[in-house]
Design a protein around this nucleic acid. Sequence first.
DNA 1: TGCGGTATTGGGGGAAACCCTAGTGTAATT
DNA 2: AATTACACTAGGGTTTCCCCCAATACCGCA
Lengths: 215, 215
Amino acid sequence: MTIINSLIMADDHELVRSGLKSLIQQQFPDTPICETGCGAQALALMLQQQPTLTLLDVTLPNMNGLDVVASARKSGYKGKIIMLSMHHWPKYVARAWLNGADGYVLKDSAFEELLVAINSVMKHERYLSKGICSQAVSDVLEHMGPNQDDLLTPRQRQVLQLVAEGHSSKYIANQLNVSLKTVEAHRSSIMNRLGIHDFAGLIKAAISLGLTQVN
Amino acid sequence: MTIINSLIMADDHELVRSGLKSLIQQQFPDTPICETGCGAQALALMLQQQPTLTLLDVTLPNMNGLDVVASARKSGYKGKIIMLSMHHWPKYVARAWLNGADGYVLKDSAFEELLVAINSVMKHERYLSKGICSQAVSDVLEHMGPNQDDLLTPRQRQVLQLVAEGHSSKYIANQLNVSLKTVEAHRSSIMNRLGIHDFAGLIKAAISLGLTQVN
DNA sequence: TGCGGTATTGGGGGAAACCCTAGTGTAATT
DNA sequence: AATTACACTAGGGTTTCCCCCAATACCGCA
């Protein structure tokens, strides 16, 4: 039987977290579960508590799950990480892999599959959800440099995500603890790099990069 | 104590359904719960089984939740309907109201709030999730005819499309041969009507209204 | 015919964003 | 060890946008 000492769960919808927590608690009654709805807090909790297992939604406010994984690994987090996502796009899966995730489970999976994933990663195996074409993921990985293949730097993606969530540069500057001017400089460099000259294009780029959703 | 004879739950993600089912089952152990992940099947089940209560996600494959509500009511479904949605936009809430929903609960709510919503609608009351500005919904309802395209005036659509294409208000003013201030007034009234408070939301609204495309 | 609502038009002032320029730190290259 | 490249940081000055307010024009309705 798999034993999980502690668990952190990050999802942007509290109802979803509650439901998942209920299901997991039934399977692992003795595991303390800590939950959060935002990426930055998830990262902080991971580093503070070093939980045995972290369940991370990909689309999170503040900082998306893929960046959380990268930052956590870079900061020395050693626990297992399973991504929860509704996206089956190979690009996302490959990015999760490279950033240091151990499992990738689609939200359109049965709970039993999540249990299989948990057991797999706790045995130091990787798990890829059914319904994801692993060949396509391999292909993407081939054409994907080990790091920094993306168009934007982590900081730029972070800023772009916050912009696309509708926050002002002032608010973003407070969130990131930098100057207003710094945020504006990031915005500017993002637009230069993507060849965008207006706000609308910025939002559309964020959508097509998966940093935010239309609705 | 509220008694629910039967319940149908529709959500596009099986993991979410499982979790929610687990929570609800704990509260209503004797209620049979039927679940589905697609809108068309949800509609069919509602008409066949006439459940006491239906929980409907707004974003569903095949047929979105708002259309399911409209069709179900038109076909004589008499049970209660609670919408589950991640969208707080007044536009969506107003549409749900007009189509015949009894409750509207954000996915970013505690499970306890869903229970309050269930108890409310079973007592023939309407329930609106916290975090939704009911005044904004009322405002939208005022300006909302029976068909969906009355949300914006032709001029507003025209302006919104140009905005979403990335043009500045100044350029738009020149294109339309009106004052800069007029265009800005249009932008303002569009945002008021849709319950939007930032530029990002404006672009996303234009996309979901089909006025522009992501790429 | 008059009345109310709203579509469309416009202004002023304050806040936010954009363009240009530039310092610092880090990592890879030569 | 020196150089190059670039991510991240930041300021000054200009342009653009957002909120409160108002005038005219149009359309349905009593």
